[in-house]
Design a protein around this nucleic acid. Structure first.
Lengths: 106, 106
DNA sequence: CAAGTCCTTGGCTATTATGCCAAACGACCA
DNA sequence: TGGTCGTTTGGCATAATAGCCAAGGACTTG
């Protein structure tokens, strides 16, 4: 893997990495239903607001969400609608896993 | 986010996390063109074979690839063809990022 | 201006991931 | 049976991540 290839896949991997956390995935799922302010997400997630804010920064940095400040609060929205299409595939993965584990247990 | 939701997104996140590493992404991309033995991948990646083996274990554990031992060597192949569909979306993300950065630099 | 709300950043600690080396393992060959 | 090849696993050092608290910045409201 040469340097150029390394860089290319590094950039791609960043997107997946950003999605590779339960809380962030949850938030993306939530944002797929419309924009939310940090306070909303914080309440839904049930973690410290600073934690949520940092997770959102990761998603924003990966180009998955975007933010918009309006008055006192900051609203995040999904910038990459196609991301939601991933989830369907992932469900397939999980279904396959479940099937395999069932087969093992018999 | 209640316990059940947490678990659900935890499982999903594992799939994304597995894809969230340059080397693993590179290997998945390579495997999308056909099965490869560990030795092949090791040479392409240019890391220690033990490192490559562990990366493959992560992918296998996430249900993305599967392995088959034939004689002396182990061949890995893509179990989740739809994963490749992700990449197209990710390209969109990266293109958007590039556009944004270009806009910023002006 | 003062005080309150909403959010981000810095700092710290605990946990997890990464990558190499060395050792173990299983299949094949002499 | 001993040796080699391809692969995995254990162990360790180093780096990256996650989450909380505390502090700071930006707006809004009194």
């Amino acid at each position: 893997m040469d340097r150029r290839t390394q860089v290319r896949f590094q950039a791609r991997a960043q997107v997946f990495k950003a999605l590779g956390h339960p809380t962030r995935l949850f938030m993306v799922d939530e944002l797929s239903r419309g924009e939310r302010c940090v306070c909303d997400l914080t309440e839904m997630v049930g973690a410290d607001m600073s934690t949520v804010s940092k997770h959102l920064a990761v998603l924003k940095n990966a180009g998955i969400v975007r933010d918009e400040k309006r008055g006192n609060q900051v609203f995040y929205s999904l910038q990459l609608p196609c991301v939601v299409g991933f989830f369907e595939c992932v469900e397939t993965v999980l279904a396959e896993q479940a099937k395999r584990q069932l087969a093992l247990s018999r």
